[in-house]
């Protein structure tokens, strides 16, 4: 499959701090890719650079084979509303909906109108006075109605009620069926959005820790929980991503796939063993354990 977004050895420094540390990432056309990780991991910076709002200190970013920075034809194919998006003074919803189509060749008034209604976005209130959820709603309307070939959602769920979240997923998938596009979505609501992704990228401290088909994330790590001594014995000589314990009980997330012997041993010792869920995986890679290693695409350790 052709890649739509191609990031190569990209680094972004802000003064002395390194926000993005030599990452490479390609996103295939038509993919709905989850960009996961803790706050400050670098998710917004990656999106911002893809959208040409920022540019790398070194390395390269290409969208449809061209660098997006100051590239008008590429920028018209990208939609990115950041989680703290600012709007011009005194703007109301109708100002946004009136001007956005000028910059988005594929804009759909129907999608915008329906969503704005269903999200109950106030029409008379200045955007400056919007609640967090209302701001998220405006961002989702812009992202979905633009039908941009590359659509970036930066924490789209912040403050959004459950009805709106369901509506967002529904509209995304319905509209995607008629107008396929490449979607990159960052979120902390992993359980709720997990089934949307065909691809999962976990970022921490500016580096890509996991890059995997969503189908295979269950093989990247497993969790063991039970009596501390049993867990210690089972996890000896293994790469522990994350561990926590409370009075004699311990739970660890271990990198790799649990083989049959380990499973049998765990059952024998009275420990519970299960593939790590995606939230567990994200939590594990966000934890400050020195042993953590990167898992490359499709890798099954």
């Amino acid at each position: 499959m052709t890649s739509t977004v191609d990031i190569h050895s990209m680094t972004r420094r802000f003064g002395r701090s390194t926000a993005i540390d030599d990452i490479s990432l390609t996103v295939a056309g038509g993919s709905i890719c989850g960009l996961l990780g803790r706050n400050g991991a670098g998710k917004t910076t990656i999106m911002s650079i893809i959208a040409g709002q920022d540019r790398p200190t070194s390395g390269s970013v290409e969208v449809f084979g061209e660098r997006p920075f100051e590239n008008e034809s590429i920028l018209s194919k990208i939609s990115f509303v950041r989680d703290n998006q600012r709007y011009p003074d005194n703007y109301r919803l109708h100002h946004v909906l009136r001007i956005a189509p000028d910059f988005a060749p594929e804009w759909s008034d129907d999608v915008a109108g329906e969503l704005a209604d269903e999200f109950r976005i106030p029409t008379q209130t200045p955007i400056k006075k919007f609640s967090r959820g209302q701001l998220s709603s405006v961002a989702i309307v812009l992202g979905l109605a633009s039908r941009a070939p590359v659509t970036l959602f930066d924490e789209p769920y912040l403050g959004l009620d459950v009805t709106a979240r369901v509506r967002f997923h529904d509209t995304l998938l319905r509209d995607y069926a008629i107008h396929p596009r490449t979607v990159l979505l960052s979120t902390h609501l992993i359980e709720e959005s997990e089934a949307l992704f065909d691809r999962v990228v976990i970022v921490d401290r500016g580096r890509i820790r996991v890059d995997s088909d969503s189908e295979h994330t269950g093989q990247l790590a497993f969790t063991l929980s039970g009596p501390s001594d049993a867990i210690d014995r089972l996890s000896a000589k293994r790469t522990i991503l994350h561990s926590r314990s409370v009075s004699g009980l311990k739970s660890v997330t271990i990198q790799g796939l649990a083989d049959a012997d380990t499973s049998a041993e765990a059952v024998r010792l009275g420990a519970r063993i299960a593939p790590a869920t995606l939230p567990e995986l994200v939590a594990a890679f966000g934890a400050d354990t020195p042993e953590t290693r990167d898992i490359k695409k499709g890798a099954v350790a």
């Binding site: 038509g30 998938l173 319905r174 995607y176 069926a177 396929p180 089934a195 949307l196 065909d198 189908e215």
Partner: peptide
């Protein structure tokens, strides 16, 4: 497949 994707809120490729 698209209908299933929408109905069950899952990835279309999946």
């Amino acid at each position: 497949a698209s209908d299933f994707a929408v109905f069950y809120t899952i990835n279309p490729a999946t």
